[in-house]
Design a protein around this nucleic acid. Sequence first.
DNA 1: ATATTTCCGGACCGTTTGGTCTGTTTAGTG
DNA 2: CACTAAACAGACCAAACGGTCCGGAAATAT
Lengths: 211, 211
Amino acid sequence: MRKDGIATREKILDGARDLVLKLGYSGMKVDHVLEHVGITKGAFFHHFKTKDELAKALLRRYASEDALIYAETRAQAEKLSDDPLQQILIFIRLFEDMFSEMTEPYPGCLLASYVYELQQFDDETRSLLHETFARWRTLLQEKFTLIIERYPPKNPVSASQLADGFTVVLEGAFILAKAMNDARMATEQLRLYRNYIELLFAAPEQMRAAA
Amino acid sequence: MRKDGIATREKILDGARDLVLKLGYSGMKVDHVLEHVGITKGAFFHHFKTKDELAKALLRRYASEDALIYAETRAQAEKLSDDPLQQILIFIRLFEDMFSEMTEPYPGCLLASYVYELQQFDDETRSLLHETFARWRTLLQEKFTLIIERYPPKNPVSASQLADGFTVVLEGAFILAKAMNDARMATEQLRLYRNYIELLFAAPEQMRAAA
DNA sequence: ATATTTCCGGACCGTTTGGTCTGTTTAGTG
DNA sequence: CACTAAACAGACCAAACGGTCCGGAAATAT
């Protein structure tokens, strides 16, 4: 086995992510990572000065990976329709499809894992969490702003609340999926969320049942 | 200060709950509890053989406390209306009111905290988590079953999914509330969930904007 | 009043844990 | 090939941690 610095660094990050989602950050000990990845202390602390530095790197990596998925899915939705409402509905459905193929519960969201140990982390990490969630909000908020202008909602709602709703449903579904060991939870709850958007903005005349 | 066994035991449980919600279970060290509660190791391990036993006691306590709140709120809703749909809507609104008075984000759900460290716990604790969430589902599922029979939903939905939706929104809102430091998150997202139920079951003619 | 049990303080202990240090191997470079 | 720097292995360490133990104080029973 050849020595490849960036490769082992990636392996550490991947392994640590898996373990954090299973055990929480404090529950994940560095020795666990060493065993899981198949390296030694020397290798680990060569790539990360401290465990907390790994935590930050993990967070940044997850946030950027996730931003990529969001951006790609959004681009895909925008390619399939010019209407902002349809774009959102497609966007949600694409996420449904992502989770529908899974056979076991989604391992969870790293950010949520951090949130429930929030006081463990320093200000930098906390603001990084804040910014990431804020970015997710902004992404969908823009669409919902357009939608609200074009289609009068049946209830008084704000674009930011609807945008947060997506994240809320996802995060909540992840928790219930793990607790109930139900892999379909995320797909089902996203479908309910999509139904809500449909009902909220659909013209009273043309209300039709969704597939 | 007099010696009161059950009182200190309660103080330990209360303090531990606060700390778990801030630091996670693994992040909460027993020394933290000792300092936070103002006792010593002797007192702690007199009431709890191990830290894991505290974890289980904590879980049982939280689950029963929560079951009480659910039952009371449900009873209150049933007192205010005979119609299952109205009962659910009142039920949700009562929860909205509970969180609306808070000035800082709800500290979170202990069960969710456990879920993100699930592999830390033994089978007994895990099944306890499972049962508790299942109980919450059943509670609302009964109502939604009646509602679906009486009012044709505009989309094909199952009672259990709608019931899970409530928990999903709550759990997701707690996470976002902490991450964004927004105390109104839970209230706002519950309102969206209530709007969804209204739109889903409202007769097309009598659809009116909610307050 | 005495005995007994519960409750608790705090020193102590073995293990775990994050992190260090030294030496060795591998990859790149002239 | 010689040299350098990055990439590791693994023994080692100090602090933190969960848990034990025993003495004593406070409540309760007799």
